[in-house]
Design a protein around this nucleic acid. Sequence first.
DNA 1: TTGTACGCGTTATCAC
DNA 2: GTGATAACGCGTACAA
Lengths: 345, 345
Amino acid sequence: MTMADDTQRSGHVPTLADVARAARVSSATVSRCLNEPHRVTRQTRERVMRVVRELGYAPNFGARALAARRTDTFGAVIPTMDNAIFARGLQAFQEEMGRHGITLLVASSSYDPGLEQEQIRNLAARGVDGVMLIGHDRPEDSYRLLQRRGVPYVVTWSHDPSQPHPSIGFDNRKAMMALMEQVIRLGHRHVGLLSGVRYGNDRARLRAEGVAESMQRAGIAADNLTTVEARYSIDAGAAGFAQLMQRRPRPTVVVCGNDVLAAGALRQARAMGLNVPGDVSITGFDDIDLAEIVTPGLTTVHVPHRQMGRGAAEILMKLRDGQDPVPPVELKASILWRESLGAAP
Amino acid sequence: MTMADDTQRSGHVPTLADVARAARVSSATVSRCLNEPHRVTRQTRERVMRVVRELGYAPNFGARALAARRTDTFGAVIPTMDNAIFARGLQAFQEEMGRHGITLLVASSSYDPGLEQEQIRNLAARGVDGVMLIGHDRPEDSYRLLQRRGVPYVVTWSHDPSQPHPSIGFDNRKAMMALMEQVIRLGHRHVGLLSGVRYGNDRARLRAEGVAESMQRAGIAADNLTTVEARYSIDAGAAGFAQLMQRRPRPTVVVCGNDVLAAGALRQARAMGLNVPGDVSITGFDDIDLAEIVTPGLTTVHVPHRQMGRGAAEILMKLRDGQDPVPPVELKASILWRESLGAAP
DNA sequence: TTGTACGCGTTATCAC
DNA sequence: GTGATAACGCGTACAA
């Protein structure tokens, strides 16, 4: 019989009433001590708080939410926790929330719109005071669900003024076009696009559109662009790169929809004995840690992750406090030059 | 005035009573339709469910938890979301939970024991039916808090039979010693240890102890080991590596407490014009994606992330269902050979 | 099979 | 400043 067996389960979780009884006050006074300490005399307050500590009391969240109709909790639904893309932005989001005494609930959707809707419903049922969403593309029902329950939300990672939702993000298409301008300037005319899955993902979709539009504007035949779609993983990136390299004429540059795919492409290039950027150039998107650490370093699009997270928190709090409407905020993404993009061979 | 302005907030969130009224049944019947559909005739069930959809009803979580004294929610407190270490294990944990209709709540502690306790308290107050914890090292109070409230928990990422807590993990010390055996066999006698922060982190502590013990067993003077501690980031790893390289005689190998530090070490080695493993060897720990993608590939300790996550879920469910005690589960970690570890120069 | 009625633990509105 | 007490929305004996 170990210690854990003795104590893992116990009889009774202390309630407000237990504290009140032990401190010889009413439950209302205990509640006040916890929520509005200044409305209680120091003497009783100290007595109550001592009992709170002794009993190890913690308020029951469900009951509190039920009575106060407010949870001081915000939610975020992100496509995946399995990588670093959203981590930094989320961290900033959380830090800003923490400063205001708000807790963050995180759910992940595995890039599945149906699952995302379920997660949104779950967060709403949990009474979150606001929700942060990634990207605009999702069933109208998902938005309606939040609107109907009066839960404020903010869309991030994408700026698209045509969308009628509060948002903060950057223009994925424009950012990709800025990168493509450099690619074309360096003489590349045969382009392989290693895109993320576009269905239900406006970031991936807009980035891909940016590539095509840039080529069109430069007067390069659409036929010179080959696109392969890959799910979000290094292995899928490697496989996609191998596929692109079979195209004739072979692309002189592989533009990737994100850094993870680019890392996979880099690995595959090495495995195929291809020099980067000597034989083929590779570009990324996002500027996560990975982009700096690979060899050669990835030329990529730097995304203002932290600024986005902090801004999203601010917007959500304005919305919660009744400020409405809040206009979309556009952030800038910039090109980060490293070594993986060079002149066309 | 955009669409969002019109609909962002609405009047009334539908309740069980609303559904009952619209469907012309009692609230009890609606509740049954949602929770025990088989105890209701098909006819009324279909009528009720249609109203549920029409009204966009979702049960109020707080109220449900309050009445049922059960949330079908498990929690996990991880040190950080900012990297991939815990992501894979957590994903497996979540998948297993999902199969059983359980939702996961994730909180992060920023490697701060105080903050971790606050998060544990928060999860407990939210009524989670179980909690997954990383590592054993934390104030006794944190455990007591859970025990007192009768919330089952499981410790992961670390196996230590001397600890009286349900757990699943691997022996961090033993794993590091297995790696060190190879390091020493390759002729290394001057070792730099780039350790993670050990305070409140038994994984980092035990890994560091493993290095020291291996050297002692091999009869190598303790003086031949230089230790530098670095917080969890690539930059800190790079700085720590630079510091270790100033030691005379210079270490022929830098053993890192995790892959992220090793990646930083690798970057710094390149910046200093040092060949790896020709001039100096570097090893990692964890085997995250990064370890495979850097150049040269990291020789590291492969950790059974997914197995750990899945196992943790199973243990937690047993505990919740009253099975007690559940003995600690030990998993195996293995050495993964890549290119960054070579013979001593 | 369905309905009635109570309790879950907290906050908020009153009196005092 | 403090104490009763009525919600809050749901689950569940128990009765019908």
